[in-house]
Design a protein around this nucleic acid. Structure first.
Lengths: 185, 185
DNA sequence: TGGTTTTGAGTCAACCGTGTCTCAAAACAT
DNA sequence: ATGTTTTGAGACACGGTTGACTCAAAACCA
């Protein structure tokens, strides 16, 4: 019965593009980027927050999917870590603004989903410890924070053209595991 | 001739406090935090940007001083790195909002000062490479980015109470140099 | 074609932050 | 005490963003 000329998916994709270019893009700017009137955008997402939440959901889902697909072919724990980072690099390219969008964390669904992903990462780190890939003495929380931070560094390095996109995951994981001192690994 | 009841220094300190609590604090909020009327704040710093720039100058100066003081007692390159990180942790606690304040980079003075600091860090990294503390193969830019990112992780970890403030510099530098894998240094 | 639904353009009120200004009161110096 | 200077309170215009609403035009389906 309905006949939308611009699908919901297209809207979200356009919004992601607009917000990637400017994380403070107004509803007007986003609508323009999608190629739709502001009224229409508001019809589909009543408030800006609603749009952000929907976009975050999408990003979290994509993260799940991309990680699952990539990590399926992991040879070992370290390789799994590297494949995961590869996936997260892609997500970061697509949704860079989410790094700063903490407002959406008020949404229970988003908060729960994110918490689950964090827990899964912690599990992977614990597994890596058992496998001797990560030192037992290092707090898991610190490993997670370091990984997060290095991910951000990786995105920036790629954006600045300092590191080729294909190599950033390897470099990042090596930095996390062996550091930048000589004689590692 | 003039008789200011609140000195310029006190204003900047108060503004730093207010902005540390909320990096998007409005002029009204900042003025309230200082304990001064908005009019007075505007009298001293005509625009918000002006205030931010002044605050950034102050932070950059403090960084210079603190780094110089601490690094004076360095035993070796690695220790120098650690002392520098210690200084930067302190600065980060005092001016956390500057991480996001890229608007001030339009100011030539700020830009130049910051560029000098970045260059000095690069020099230190190069020195560390010559001293065998950092692998020659790793791009200096990547080391700098990693250090930056880990600094942010360190601030967050301390704020979250995951790592004691006194240990974060050591942990951070060890992570940067040897990573989190077993068998490093 | 006819009936349904979405769309674009535009209007409107409301809110918030900024920056400017005025003026009377308070703090200060001599 | 006198005169200077700063201060606080308040008002003002301006710009930007949000979200609600209306209405005619366009897209669509049958």
């Amino acid at each position: 019965m309905g006949r939308p000329r611009t699908s919901r998916e297209e809207m979200l994709a356009g919004a992601a593009r607009a917000l990637a270019a400017d994380r403070n893009a107004s509803m007007a700017t986003i609508a323009a980027a999608i190629g739709v009137s502001r009224a229409t955008l508001h019809r589909h997402y009543a408030t800006r927050r609603e749009l952000l939440v929907e976009l975050t959901r999408r990003a979290l889902d994509e993260t799940d999917r991309l990680c699952a697909v990539r990590m399926a072919g992991a040879r070992d724990t370290r390789h799994a870590l590297e494949l995961m980072v590869e996936a997260l690099v892609v997500i970061g390219e697509r949704y860079p603004f989410l790094t700063y969008a903490m407002e959406v964390m008020t949404d229970e669904g988003v908060r729960a989903h994110y918490a689950r992903q964090v827990a899964e990462l912690a599990e992977l780190v614990e597994l890596a410890k058992r496998d001797g890939v990560i030192r037992e003495g290092v707090p898991t929380a610190w490993v997670a924070r370091s990984l997060d931070a290095l991910l951000y560094a990786g995105w920036e390095a790629v954006r600045a053209g300092e590191v080729p996109k294909e190599e950033v995951a390897t470099l990042l994981v090596r930095t996390l595991l062996e550091g930048v001192a000589p004689r590692g690994g």
